[in-house]
Design a protein around this nucleic acid. Structure first.
Ligand SMILES: [Zn+2]
Ligand SMILES: [Zn+2]
Ligand SMILES: [Zn+2]
Ligand SMILES: [Zn+2]
Lengths: 149, 149
DNA sequence: AATTTGGATGTTATAATGTAACATCAGCTC
DNA sequence: GAGCTGATGTTACATTATAACATCCAAATT
């Protein structure tokens, strides 16, 4: 069960164990993403923080906070959408492992699914055959969700 | 062998057969992409057309031309990079089939590789299990090329 | 308690990517 | 030539993102 408060507490401990801090504003941004089943842009997150917490966070800060949350493996950036989503695995032990993201091109609803090792291996092989090096195996799939089909 | 002129002639015929026209400016943009092994942004293409053909094409037109070239299956948009690349299969009969793109995050060098049917099937299955519908199976992989590692 | 210090945040300006709305142009048909 | 259609131009603006520099704040040290 993804209870926001318990996830936030877990995230706080994770950060503490790494010597970083989950500050109030960082919590607001993370909570905004946790409580959304859609990926949100930085500017949408500004609006969410204003509306739900009456907190004005400038764009620059939101970008920095998102970068921090990514570095802590709490949030993913979906490059094809230029939006951000909380990691579906925050509350278990798979945090940081590789995923594919099904992204609704219409409403930005996102589902994060683990990338099968066999798939991962195939992708790796293709990349190596082409003399490239895989930096980040995150797969983003251009989809429509069931509400939008 | 990817000879620009012969590809352009082929592209002209393709367009003609569909009742569209490969105009001078569309040729310039397509040629710019064909002769680059790196994906280019719309604004980089403006510069290329200016430098190589002394042709000033406004941003709006370049975006429209890129959209046209995509609709003719001559060009791909790489969403993770916000850049564009000519289709590696223009000169054979695989035009329009599904691909994965290895994109160097450092220099934008791109390699387009056919997506194996088995992979395609696995991806489809994952998407369906999640009650999503796959709109475009294009895979973009965040890589480093051999020059940039 | 006051000081120091480094990380977090604020401010301002600007870059890069992309689109909407409306005007004009160029090539074809009649 | 008149009229039509698709292609291009113009202007304005929206969205996403970063650089550079200033300030704040909380925890540790004195
Ligand atoms: Zn995740
Ligand atoms: Zn949707
Ligand atoms: Zn292609
Ligand atoms: Zn490279």
């Amino acid at each position: 069960m993804r209870n926001t408060d318990s996830i936030i507490r877990r995230a706080e401990k994770l950060c503490a164990s790494r010597g970083t801090r989950l500050t109030k504003k960082r919590k607001y941004v993370l909570t905004g993403l946790l409580e959304s089943d859609k990926a949100l842009s930085a500017y949408e997150l500004i609006d969410v923080c204003k509306e739900k917490y009456d907190e004005d966070i400038p764009a620059m800060s939101v970008y920095r906070i998102l970068e921090f949350l990514q570095s802590e493996y709490l949030v993913h950036k979906l490059n094809t959408a230029s939006k951000y989503a909380s990691c579906a695995n925050i509350d278990d032990d798979k945090v940081g492992c590789y995923s594919q993201f099904l992204i609704c091109r219409s409403c930005s609803k996102v589902k994060e699914v683990g990338l099968k090792p066999s798939m991962m291996a195939e992708l790796q092989a293709t990349v190596q055959d082409a003399s490239f090096k895989l930096v980040n195996p995150q797969l983003e799939m251009n989809c429509l969700c069931e509400d939008c089909v």
